[in-house]
Write a protein that binds this DNA or RNA. Structure first.
Lengths: 342, 342
DNA sequence: CGTGAAATAGTTATCGATAACATATGGAGG
DNA sequence: CCTCCATATGTTATCGATAACTATTTCACG
C-alpha cells in the first residue's frame, strides 16, 4: 500500500476549492454536457486528474436513486451456454457503463432464495434470472420488488415480470422430428432427472410428448443424476440406456456435453454412429462441432438471449419509458444437423 | 408492475415511527447484536416485514465507506478454467455476503483500461484481476487505487499488489519432462501466439526454455491465432504442425481444448495416439478426462485459486488487519498422466 | 446603449443509514 | 433508600454528489 493511499479521500469540494468554483460546477463538469464553460470544465478536469480524484458512485447513487447496475443470477457459470449469455449481456451492458452484480446459485433454489434479498438491497436497476423455477418466497419477493424482473432461458407459463427465452419443450421436438423423419423409431433420452434442472426436465417432457403424439413408445428414459451433468455422465448413461433397452436406435441427450460422452462411449464400444445408433445433443456447444462424428443439435441462441436481455434493460431504463406491461421475447431455436444422425 | 411498486419507498424512519422508537434503534435491531431489548427487536423486525421494508445498502455504504463488494475482472467467462475460479471465488465470498461486480475484458487490454475506472468508482473492497498483463495507465491507476489489488492466475515478476497464481512457465516443464522421460525428442507446441494471451505465451516460453535446457530443438511452434483458441483451432493446428514438421513425435498444447482438437484430428487422420504421436494438454478440463484417448495434462488448481483469493480477501477486510506488505500465494500445478502420452 | 433571454455559476436541502455522543431506565450493592 | 454502572434508547451530524432553485453574467438585437 503506497503512501498515496493513506491520503484523505479527494472529493468534489476539494476540486471546487482548488479551482475556485462551487462543487455544483464540478459535478456538472463531470457529467459532461450541461452548461459549463469549456474553459471551466477543462480546469476542473485537469485539477481532478492532478489531485487523483475518483468519482464516488455510491454517493451519486444514493442521491439519484439510480445505481447503474443489474443483478444477474445464474445457476452455474461452468455451463458454456450460460456463460455465453452472461458474456453477451455483460458486453452490451458495459457499453453503457452498466455493471453486473453476479450471483451464482449452483442450481440450488434455496441458495437463490438467500442471495436475491442480498442483491435487492443494493438497488439494482433490474434483476435478471437464468431460469424460471424459484421458491415460493423468492417469487413473492420478486413480485413485490421495485425493480424490473427478467427471467431468461425459458418461457414460463406464469412469469414474474419480463421474459427472454425459448421453449425447451418445443426445441426438443425439432430433434425428435428429425430423427423420426430419418426412420428411427426406438428413441431414448439421456438426462433431465426430476430435480434441480427445470430446463432439462422440460426437454425430457418435450421428448415424451413428441413421441406420444407420434404414437411411439417413450419409456427409454435414463436420468443421469443431479445437475450439472456432463460428459462423464453421458458416457455412463449410454451404457445404462443400452443395457436396459438394447434395441434403441436413436438417442437425444439433454446437452451436447452428454451427447459427446455418449458418442465417445460408442467409439469405445465399437457402436457405429449414426449407422447403428443416431445421437443428438442440445445447445450447440463447441464440443458438438468438433467431435467425431459431429453432433446434430439445437442452437438455442445463448448470445442472442443475452443481447436481447440487454436491449430490454436499456428499454426499461430509458428515461421516457412509459412502463407498459411485461414483455416477452420468444427466441426461436434452430436445428443443426450434423453427422451423428442420418 | 404491481400497484405496491408505486408506493413510496419504506425506510428505517418509517418503521421507527410505526413501532414508536427511533431510527437508530431500528438500525441496531437490523444489525443484530448490539444492545437492543429482544422485544423491541422483534417488534421492529415484524413491522419491517409487514411494511415490506428493504434495507438500502447504498446509504449504508456511503455512511460507512464500506461497500461489501469485490470487483472481478476476467478475460473471458467462456473459459471453463476461469469460470471455475470465479465460481469458487463467488461461492466463498457469498458466504460472507460479499457480492461480485463482474467485468469482462474479452482478452482486450484497452477494454480493461476502460472498465477498471468504472469499477473503482464504486468503491469495491478489493479488485481481483485474472491476468497480470495490463496497460501502463491501468497499472498506474491500480497502483494508486485505495483498494487492495489481487492479480491471479499468474506469477508476475512485478506485481501491483497481491498475487494468487502459479507459474505457467514452470508448469509446462512438467509436461516436457514427462514426454522426454518417455523417449520423445521431437516435440512441438500448439498455441501461445504473441498477442493477447500472456498465459499462453508463458507456456510457450516455458516449452522453449525446457527444450533448450535439454539441448533439444525447439522450433516446432505453431501459433493458432487470437485468444481464445479452442478445439477448432487445435484440429487445424495439428494439420499445420505435421505438414511443417512431419517427424514430430510429441505435442504439448496450450490447453486441453486445443489438445482435444488435435487428438480428434489424429483420429480422423488415422494417426495413433500415443504410439505415433504423444499429445498433452493443459488445464485439466473435463474434455481431457473424457476424450479418447484421455489427455495427459496439468491441473492448475483453478478452484483453489478462487478459494485462496477469497481467503485473502477475508484477511484483507478483517477489522484488525494490520496491513502488512503484499502477499503472494504460489499454487503448485499437478501433472496428470493419462493415455494420450506413453 | 438598453433590454431580456440564454448561458453560466452558486446555495441549500436531500438521498437513507449510522457513528458518535447524550440520555434515560433498571437493578445490584452498600 | 441512595449511588453507580450496565443496559437500552434517543439526538445530531455526517458520508459525497446532485436536484431544484436562485443569482449572476453574457450577448444578440432592437
Amino acid at each position: 500500500m503506497s503512501p498515496a493511499k493513506r491520503h484523505a479521500k479527494v472529493k468534489m469540494t476539494d476540486i471546487a476549492q482548488a479551482v475556485g468554483v462551487s462543487a455544483m460546477t464540478v459535478s456538472r463538469a463531470f457529467k459532461g454536457d450541461t452548461g459549463v464553460k469549456p474553459a471551466t470544465r477543462a480546469a476542473v478536469l485537469s485539477k481532478a486528474e492532478e489531485l487523483g480524484y475518483v468519482f464516488d458512485a455510491t454517493a451519486a447513487n444514493l442521491r439519484q436513486s439510480r445505481t447503474g447496475f443489474v443483478a444477474v443470477v445464474v445457476p452455474s457459470l461452468e455451463n458454456a451456454n450460460f456463460s455465453a449469455t452472461v458474456r453477451a449481456l455483460s458486453k452490451a451492458l458495459s457499453q453503457k457503463n452498466i455493471q453486473i452484480l453476479l450471483a451464482n446459485t449452483e442450481y440450488d433454489v434455496e441458495e437463490e432464495e438467500r442471495l436475491i434479498p442480498q442483491l435487492l438491497r443494493r438497488n439494482p436497476e433490474a434483476i435478471v434470472l437464468i431460469g424460471t423455477q424459484h421458491s415460493k418466497r423468492t417469487r413473492a419477493l420478486l413480485k413485490k420488488a421495485p425493480v424490473p424482473v427478467i427471467e431468461i432461458w425459458d418461457l414460463p407459463r406464469e412469469a414474474i415480470g419480463h421474459v427472454v427465452g425459448f421453449s425447451n419443450f418445443d426445441a426438443v421436438q425439432l430433434l425428435v422430428a428429425h430423427l423420426v423423419k430419418s426412420g428411427r423409431r426406438r428413441l431414448g433420452f439421456l438426462g433431465g432427472e426430476a430435480g434441480n434442472d427445470p430446463r432439462g426436465q422440460q426437454r425430457r417432457a418435450g421428448f415424451v410428448a413428441a413421441l406420444a403424439q407420434l404414437a411411439l413408445p417413450a419409456h427409454r428414459l435414463v436420468p443421469l443424476g443431479t445437475a450439472p451433468v456432463g460428459m462423464t455422465e453421458g458416457a455412463a448413461g449410454l451404457d445404462r440406456l443400452l443395457s436396459q433397452f438394447p434395441d434403441t436406435d436413436g438417442i437425444i441427450c439433454v446437452s451436447d456435453l452428454v451427447g459427446f460422452g455418449a458418442v465417445a462411449q460408442c467409439a469405445r464400444r465399437g457402436i457405429a454412429v449414426p449407422e447403428t445408433l443416431a445421437i443428438a445433443g442440445f445447445g450447440n456447444y463447441e464440443i458438438g462441432r468438433v467431435c467425431e462424428p459431429a453432433l446434430t443439435t439445437v442452437d438455442v441462441g445463448a448470445e442472442q438471449i443475452g443481447q436481447r436481455t440487454a436491449e430490454l434493460v436499456f428499454d426499461l431504463l430509458a428515461p421516457g419509458n412509459t412502463r407498459q406491461g411485461p414483455r416477452r421475447f420468444d427466441i426461436h431455436p434452430d436445428l443443426i444437423v450434423r453427422r451423428s444422425t442420418p
